[in-house]
Amino acid sequence: MQLEYFHMIDRIVDLNVDEKRIVVEATVPKESTIFEGHFPGYPLMPGVLLIESMAQASGFLLLGVLKFERMPILAAVKEAKVRGSVFPGDVMTLEASLAHEGSGYAMTEAKIRVDGKLRANSALTFTLIPFPNSDMRGYMDAVAKRVGFPQQAVSP
């Protein structure tokens, strides 16, 4: 993870497009400027970044399901629960599944576990937009490569 760059996902462990489910991993860095303020003497992953992590895991799932024909943009956090703290050095396993694919939007459910224990979960809504320009599409291709996105799922 590179928190300052919003690189929340390190690698894709499993992407099952047929079952509309993804598992990804992310290791929380041991040091980050974010932890200097959140909190001094007790560094803790901010809840909003846990939500962002679940959104990005969901986003990779949707990119796979949609074969990179649309870009998912987070539109609503229907529910989010932070059930336990996540600390620097923790390895997060995130799982996301597609709850509903509508016309131009999708809803997912996502979970974060550390050492098998549930730390957070959320229900998220995304709008699915055409890639606005080639820069963004190129960036997402690079991100997909970085996290080990299955190449057969990248191209339509």
Binding site: A76, H100, G102, S103
Partner: peptide, 17 residues
């Protein structure tokens, strides 16, 4: 979108928004 989701589910359709 929430309404469309509920309609999609309830009627088993996909509103072509």
């Amino acid at each position: 979108l929430d309404i469309a989701f509920a309609i999609d589910k309830q009627f088993g359709i996909k509103l072509p928004l």
